[in-house]
Amino acid sequence: MDINMSTVMFFAFALLAVFPAFMVLFAKDIVRVAFWLLASLSGVAGLYIIMGADFLGLTQVLVYIGGILVLILFGIMMTSKDPLLKRARHVERSVVTGIVTGALVFAALAAVILGIGFESGKGRADGGATTTALGEALLTDYILPFEVVSVLLLFVLCGAAHVARRRKEGAHA
């Protein structure tokens, strides 16, 4: 049986993406949740790279792992008196709900995906680095969303700063 490198890589990264995803569901405390998420997102980054989306893989690492996760960790630290607080017993029951729902959703989706029977013949073959192409597309075909997102980031930044800023004297914010 011929086991080539890309197959091994796929399964390795798939495992890295999926196993921690379920640990996010099971983990006992919120800090572990965040670190399991980090692992899962790294797995996804690896999958991007397997599919030849090298730029996306890097962005995933930089923005998600470097940005969003740090943000989440900050959030945890600033809002938890005891971050390692164990989950209370009454919460456990809802994990079962989560597992059951998740399993049902997966069963349905898997049935649909296999039922549709996608062909993988077409599509963009491995065309080497995508950074240039993506950059070009963002500044030509997709210039509109690109600019729009910059406005979005601007007001989100200001708005979030306004909301999160500690109140000083109360009346004037």
Binding site: P145, V148, L152, V156, A160, H162, A173
Partner: peptide
């Protein structure tokens, strides 16, 4: 993409405006 982006754009502003009165 634009439909989703528009929805997100409007939503983000709405989230912040909802919580505007601190």
């Amino acid at each position: 993409l634009i439909a989703w982006l528009g929805i997100e754009f409007a939503s983000m502003a709405s989230y912040l405006a909802t919580a505007f009165d601190k």
